[in-house]
Design a protein around this nucleic acid. Structure first.
Lengths: 218, 218
DNA sequence: CAATTATTCAATATACTTATTGAATATATT
DNA sequence: AATATATTCAATAAGTATATTGAATAATTG
């Protein structure tokens, strides 16, 4: 192989990987799968996609070694290929949010609109984890909580939150978290809880970021 | 802003960044600019692109906050926007080379074809740096060497190597390095030198990877 | 200020990507 | 075996990306 051919092969391959990531629907699917495996139907429920379209995007991700699939009965379950990919995805989102002005601004505005500007980060959370006056609340759907959650967290799915407000004390500080920085469930939870007189903040990151942080420290 | 609008804005922005990276020509330009700033002409010399095409790709990179430009006389010089981006780029290439089978295979074959399978990595290099019996050879064009090089390296541009073989001792071990893992200059140098009876290996990475490693350790 | 050099712009033709539709397949249930 | 359910496939039309060409612009030199 000539030098130019080698370079072309490498850059073409690299570009192919980037192309697989260069679509908003696929990025959202990746974020959903970073909570744990999901069937096509599960992906559809968590996004705005049609079944055929979600399946098509999942094929693209599969052909680029970003996701794996396994069949179980009627369902085909998809999952991220490994934690190295999850680390890469988080590196990309972190860069985008901190270095691309438009995204930083959109993010800040979203937090402001939901009284969630005083977000807690993972480092701060660590120092609060043994505090009996702090309640860590996972507001994702129960299926995602079951596939993995921050240790010590209580599952309070967002769509059940309003019904069980009376179960929580207004003396405790509540930290709500969800899928990650782009997920709005924790923002919605903060809004509802603060409007009802609770002390509440959201976690800046989500479960997948906590998981990767745990992995690194071991 | 509704939750769905926020998500769309974030994923669209993220996808836009990925799209800017989803082209082999632009990835090669990024690799060239990671050696230091270059004019459009400089980029053209280092790649296979026409002037108009290179300029067009540079505009795309500029519109996505990946490169900056400054004018000096006739020339417009482009450079990577910051080291955070360089870190991201290196994270991407590292993932691709170690996790995408086709790329790993292509890479290994290239190394084999050039008797360069016994590459040295940056960690190993560190322990050799004070060894008087090791000659560290920068085979990139002199302009790139001048913009920054591994400390202790001697500049021996690839196209001048054949003329000055007599200047080097066959007792010293030579470590050749260039722009990075996708650059073929060091492979060519290893081929020429080993065919002429020198003890030679290539550095697995290149100058930009060394630079980022230095940054991290400080 | 005319000529030169480096870069950018604009237009175009080709190729790729995507969402949508409806049909096909594969597994499980009755 | 027939039916139901979940997923994939195939075809299409609309939108997007790219390399190429030649003209336009911007700064320098003679």
């Amino acid at each position: 192989m000539k030098g130019r051919e080698f370079k072309d092969a490498m850059y073409d391959g690299l570009a192919k990987l980037m192309k697989a990531l260069a679509n908003p629907a696929r990025l959202e699917i990746i974020e959903m799968l970073s909570q744990g495996e999901k069937s096509v139907e599960g992906v559809v429920e968590a996004t705005n996609l049609t079944v055929a379209n979600a399946s098509q995007h999942l094929q693209v991700l599969k052909n680029n070694n970003i996701v794996n699939s396994r069949r179980e009965g009627h369902y085909v379950y998809y999952s991220l290929v490994n934690d190295d990919f999850l680390a890469l995805y988080q590196h990309i989102t972190k860069f985008a949010v901190s270095e691309i002005a438009v995204l930083e601004k959109t993010m800040n505005r979203q937090r402001e609109d939901n009284h969630a500007t005083n977000a807690v980060n993972l480092e701060e959370l660590e120092s609060m984890i043994n505090d009996k006056n702090v309640l860590l609340m996972d507001v994702r759907p129960p299926s995602e909580y079951e596939l993995g959650h921050i240790s010590g967290a209580v599952s309070v799915p967002m769509n059940e939150l309003l019904c069980c407000l009376k179960d929580f004390s207004k003396d405790q500080e509540i930290i709500a978290y969800c899928r990650g920085p782009f997920c709005v469930l924790a923002d919605e939870a903060v809004k509802v809880l603060s409007e009802n007189g609770f002390k509440v903040r959201r976690l800046d990151e989500g479960y997948p970021e906590w998981k990767m942080r745990q992995l690194k420290s071991n």
